[in-house]
Design a binder for these strands. Structure first.
Lengths: 198, 198
DNA sequence: AACTATACGGAGGCAGCCTCCGCTTTGTCA
DNA sequence: TGACAAAGCGGAGGCTGCCTCCGTATAGTT
């Protein structure tokens, strides 16, 4: 699901407006695609010059569309967020505990693919930038029903909310020194902490 | 406990050698102190020029002592690590569960004070740089007895090691969007996941 | 006091970030 | 379809921070 102005509600995001003229829109899309490529390849230190070159546009064009580095990062990040959010519905008919934890594992896998981008975002962006709020909002809205259901079923403690749960999981998912296998294991341990106290 | 060449074993660290001439040693210390100050103040984007100015030495001097940015960061970080490691002994005579979790809360508090520095380190340093290994080693050696005791007492599951436990906790501790109160709460939840499965 | 190894410091080269403005393209209106 | 404004393009160049290099200064030694 792509983030286009048409499909976005007021609360959905704070992405730069997608431009109107055909050539501009073309370049905008090329830039986002190039940014995704470059951020996916580079372990670190992607330069904006390289992204603009890869997109086949001038550096000035990049800056017109994305006045600050973060705007480009946001655009490259956002539709992954929407995707993982919507994936929540796929877990609707599993058991409450499996539905919640299954979706959270999905979130972890997503985070793994976007680690460089996420680091960039945190490095560059204010903790409470509107964009973060948007992303959080989308993810929370998606996960909240799964959590509530698990709590109603009595398999998750009542003193946590969806913000708590996703943050806890994301913290572990973003561990930069842990291999994927360990992250999965640690997430499972932490999720066990969500079970109601005996 | 300060990190001096005299007190360091081969495995302890990979810090640059502390220099021999009196003026050089003075400048080295001034630089480390200035780096700590600046990293503590700045939310982000501390410049090396500023650190050298604050220390009252030329930029060339900074680079002679710390050829790469990371060397300075390491030096500024390291003795905090040793401090938190040695704090483990203070929990020796508490109950096994309280000893382990009490010390881990200490680790979390330490992480909170060094967040900028930690971010810098991760941004700049290879995941398996010797320095990381040293820090991990020091912390693991300190925490391992507490974990073993808790496992022997049957209050912590057997399928985790000290590496798992500290990473899980550090992941949550480094959450950049969570206030201290929430981090404490989430760490407590995750630690509950360490209890043996019923 | 003279000497040498050690250390100092900042000018300057380099790279990435970002701005600015003259040129080009698009879309529109007759 | 041609002509015109508005929108968009692009890259030269300024700025800043990173880092190197080398002429000068100082500690320690004899």
């Amino acid at each position: 699901m792509a983030a286009t102005p048409e499909t976005m509600t007021a609360t959905a995001t704070a992405l730069p407006d997608r431009p109107k003229r055909a050539d501009a829109r073309r370049n905008y899309d090329k830039l986002v695609a190039a940014a995704r490529e470059v951020f996916a390849e580079q372990e670190t230190g992607a330069t904006l010059e390289e992204i603009s070159k890869r997109a086949g546009v001038g550096i000035g064009t990049l800056y017109r569309h994305f006045p600050a580095r973060e705007n480009l990062i946001e655009a490259a990040y956002y539709d992954g967020v929407e995707e993982v959010a919507t994936s929540a519905i796929r877990f609707a008919d599993e058991e409450p505990w499996e539905a919640l934890t299954g979706w959270l594992r999905e979130v972890v896998a997503f985070a793994a693919t976007k680690r460089v981008l996420a680091d960039e975002m945190f490095a560059v962006m204010d903790r409470d930038a509107p964009f973060f709020k948007s992303c959080s909002g989308v993810v929370y809205d998606a996960g909240e029903p799964l959590l509530s259901r698990a709590q109603d079923a009595g398999v998750v403690r009542d003193d946590v909310d969806i913000n708590d749960v996703t943050k806890m999981v994301m913290g572990i998912a973003n561990l930069r020194t842990a291999p994927a296998e360990q992250i999965e294991r640690l997430v499972a341990v932490a999720l066990d902490g969500l079970r109601p106290p005996a």
